[in-house]
Structure formats: structure tokens, C-alpha cells
Computed example of a mutant assay.
Amino acid sequence: MISRLTILISVAAVASGFPSDVSPCNGTSAELFPHPKECQLYYNCSITDSPRLMPGGQGVTECKYPLLYDETSETCMEEVNCGSRKLKKNACDYYNKKCDLPHCIPCHFLFPKCEGLADGTYPHPTKQPSPYCFVCNNERFVDEISCPDSVLTTQTPSTEI
């Protein structure tokens, strides 16, 4: 049984914004906690380690892009109030999209940036000339599709690669 002191310490650590390199997991609970600084991250205390590129110690877990961690439902969702936690809009800023091995395809070839773009469909900047387009919603990449004829005749947006 988890003691009240353990729960109180864990809750206090989350509320006070424990450092991002210190896990609130104490090794005996299977609780979930939001990461104090990044909206796509959370602590799953039932996990004893974390991927090597992930910051924050034991149990740090990342939602799949473009999902974010919701404190209330304790799940990864598309629409979340991040509060003071940083919202990463670019898929390539997610840790699970990073690869430092020589065989990796650069992330931006697969996930173009939508920051600064209006919601809509755009020709894929790294797959031209081709019928591929990408879809932006709330400045976040949400899909890659076959371009509608109306988009194929427009200019490629200037996105940073």
C-alpha cells in the first residue's frame, strides 16, 4: 500500500514544478504525472527506464505526434490545455522523432513545418515535383495526402527545412 506521505510528496513535486531531470516516480507506484515543462511528455511510474534520447529520468514517456498529455484524463489527446508547459508544434521537436544514427531519414523530409502557416493543404516541400501535399491544423502537421488539383497549381509555401 502506498503511504500518504509518498502520495503527498509526489503531488507536491508536481505542483511545485520539480526539475525536468528529476522523476516524481518513487519506484513503488504506477501513477501518471504530467511533465512540468513539456506538454507532450508525462511520467508513467510503472516504467522503470526511458528511451535514451528522452529527458527526465525514470518513467518519462512521450505521446505520439501530434498528441499531447492531458492532466485531467491522464491520456494523450489532440486538444489539450498545456497551461505553462511548452507546446511543441513541429513533429521533429518530439524526442521520438529524433534519430542520431547514420541510416536515418531526416525528420523534416517526412514532417514539414506548419508553424506560421494557416490551416490548409500545401505542396510537400521535400517531395517536389510530386502529387504529395501536407495538411496543417493549428500550425501543426496532421497528415500527408494526395494533392487536390487546386493545390497542385499553387506555389509551395516557404517553410524552413
Rank of each mutant, 00 (worst) to 15 (best):
S84K: 15
L110P: 00
P148H: 04
N90E: 14
P106C: 05
Y122L: 07
D93C: 04
C45T: 01
S73N: 14
P66F: 11
I47Q: 08
L101H: 05
C82V: 09
E79D: 15
C147I: 07
E79F: 07
S150V: 13
Y65L: 03
C147K: 09
K97E: 09
N137Y: 06
N26L: 01
T154F: 02
E62G: 10
V80P: 06
T61G: 03
G56T: 05
P123K: 15
T156A: 14
Q40Y: 01
F18A: 04
V22R: 12
D149P: 15
K37G: 03
D49V: 00
Y95I: 07
L152H: 02
T154W: 02
S84Y: 05
F111D: 00
T154V: 11
G27V: 01
T154D: 09
T153L: 14
N90S: 14
I145A: 03
L101T: 13
V142H: 03
R52Q: 10
E78Y: 08
E115F: 05
K89A: 13
L117Q: 14
T126A: 14
L117K: 13
D70C: 08
G57H: 07
S29V: 04
K127E: 14
K64H: 10
T72N: 08
T153I: 13
M54P: 04
L53I: 10
K86L: 14
R52I: 06
